[in-house]
């Protein structure tokens, strides 16, 4: 059953994300994740509500300052950044990716392990 008061918010969410400051933030996040802006925008629209999208810029700034301080693998993957500051990935899924990446880093070069970890993060975001 479709309720009358349930509106399609995608257009309004898209408008929020394409305003000057938000667009800059989306591009920065997409670059960090290594994915296209359009794909990230679609994931943000699907996963986050309007007030979260409005606050995206501030959360991104705070994440840059305070998230994942200390652990280089967690910092590269953005474990806290993409679960607690900008919740695009489930905490459990991110924990699994982090554990697997740390384990992989024992046998393979760190860059390669992180590259694979980031690939899995992108898959988790788009799933």
């Amino acid at each position: 059953m479709k309720y009358l008061y349930e509106k399609d918010l995608r257009q309004m969410k898209y408008n929020i994300l394409t305003s000057t400051r938000h667009d800059e933030t989306v591009r920065a996040v997409a670059q960090r994740l290594g994915m296209s802006d359009a794909k990230l925008r679609r994931a943000l629209i699907q996963k986050l509500d309007m007030s979260f999208l409005e606050n995206l810029e501030s959360r991104w700034q705070m994440g840059q300052k305070h998230a994942d301080n200390g652990d280089p693998v967690a910092e590269e993957l953005g474990c806290e950044l993409f679960t607690r500051f900008i919740p695009l990935v489930d905490t459990e899924a991110m924990q699994t990716i982090y554990s697997d990446t740390t384990a992989m880093a024992q046998n393979t070069p760190l860059d390669e392990a992180i590259r694979r970890g980031k690939e899995r993060i992108r898959e988790a975001i788009l799933s």
């Binding site: 400051r21 007030s51 810029e57």
Partner: peptide
């Protein structure tokens, strides 16, 4: 407020980040 003006004092670009953007989101989540 982030403002860009031209030589005639016209506001070319402006973005406003208000406190309620952050507070309402924190309140809800």
């Amino acid at each position: 407020y982030t403002i860009t003006t031209d030589d005639y004092g016209r506001v070319v670009d402006i973005t406003i980040r208000t406190p309620s953007i952050m507070n309402v989101e924190a309140c809800a989540h």
